[in-house]
Design a protein around this nucleic acid. Sequence first.
DNA 1: CGGCAAATGTAAACGGTGTTAACATTAGTA
DNA 2: TACTAATGTTAACACCGTTTACATTTGCCG
Lengths: 220, 220
Amino acid sequence: MGTATVSQRSYHHGDLRNACLRSALDLLEEGGLEAVTLRAVAERTGVSRSAPYRHFETKRALLAAAAATGFRRLNDAITAARDTAGDDPQTRLTAGCGAYARFGAGHPHLYRLMFAGDFCEGPLFGNRTPVEESEFPELIEAGNDAFDSLVEGLQEAQEQGALRLRDPRSQALAIWSMIHGVMSLYLDNRTAYGRHETAALEAVLQEVLAIAFEGLAKPS
Amino acid sequence: MGTATVSQRSYHHGDLRNACLRSALDLLEEGGLEAVTLRAVAERTGVSRSAPYRHFETKRALLAAAAATGFRRLNDAITAARDTAGDDPQTRLTAGCGAYARFGAGHPHLYRLMFAGDFCEGPLFGNRTPVEESEFPELIEAGNDAFDSLVEGLQEAQEQGALRLRDPRSQALAIWSMIHGVMSLYLDNRTAYGRHETAALEAVLQEVLAIAFEGLAKPS
DNA sequence: CGGCAAATGTAAACGGTGTTAACATTAGTA
DNA sequence: TACTAATGTTAACACCGTTTACATTTGCCG
């Protein structure tokens, strides 16, 4: 009979861990968190039900890996937007915030998973202490990296004289809280308009950012 | 044998719906959402496994009722704090926000359930349109009532000249977003300090509120 | 090369969960 | 007092996460 072709994969998969992760992300995007079932992940990957357990100790571990992937993608989206936004620090910050919102609106289930808060025992943003002691260090690190990007943007704005000189870490935490609040209410369908009314999201976000920048601006 | 005493309840419970609701709220407070199992609710109420289904069509309906109770309690806490906060509009607003944060920190699981976003098809805050068409109108109404309290506080502050004159509904949505963002990151263990570090929560909240009031204040 | 241990995948089962169907009991009423 | 609707019970269903025992393959060491 046919000799083993390259894509045959009779028994061993070769990269099952990443394949499961991709299946989980796909299922999440298509059907929300409730669609992400280990059985569904296994079936979609074309493997037996218990195979994923060779690469993820538990379902939470798989979801944590997916959330970490989400933070890395979010960070990429923010930095890319800022890098193509010119020189004005406020424009760069606004571009980053817009990319943040676009990411959340475009991947609502992933965004909610990233902030689901059932993964980390330890804190995430602003954490300088034991990353390795956490249950899912990969997730902690990805989240902190994204936070650091925001801190850099604020420092940049401070140095160019656009913002008051305060601790940029606490400024960053305050701004992140605001934007996350907007996204959270929007994604959880709590705002005044429908779930897919991107216009409503943009309006609220602009109002919040306007208030925030007014409150953070250097008194002229 | 003993004639039926008042509390005998041999077969019919009398107020099983409220009893289940209370059991669910207790289980939620004690063990988080994962502890709220219909079986546990039934057992705690001292009733068979399928009895709750006579009063709640599904588990989601029970959780929605619990979330509505949460919004009513939150509204009560906010208005009580504001009513005992004197006359200064900003003090009254700050007192309301503090009560909001205290409620969330004191009932983290309930707060997260209220904003879990798996109940409403339609929007919640700021909604003037079909409350009855929603899947859980009780929840929509309780959420809108709480939102309206915040709007009233902002109108009050505007009338007394403490805030810029803008649409108080969009101001309220912006402020709610900010505070909810702080609470969400805190409860989901995303902030820079431990979960039960109330001091950290207060610090971030004060920073956010300071920025917000600065941004909303009437230019002097 | 040969064989052997570790890594990886499979099959079948366990307990727990939401939900439903069929049946039992009670309350309200004509 | 009989009948009906409301309410509660028991037993089962499918689905889920997880584990255990077993099968296959890979890689390495002699």
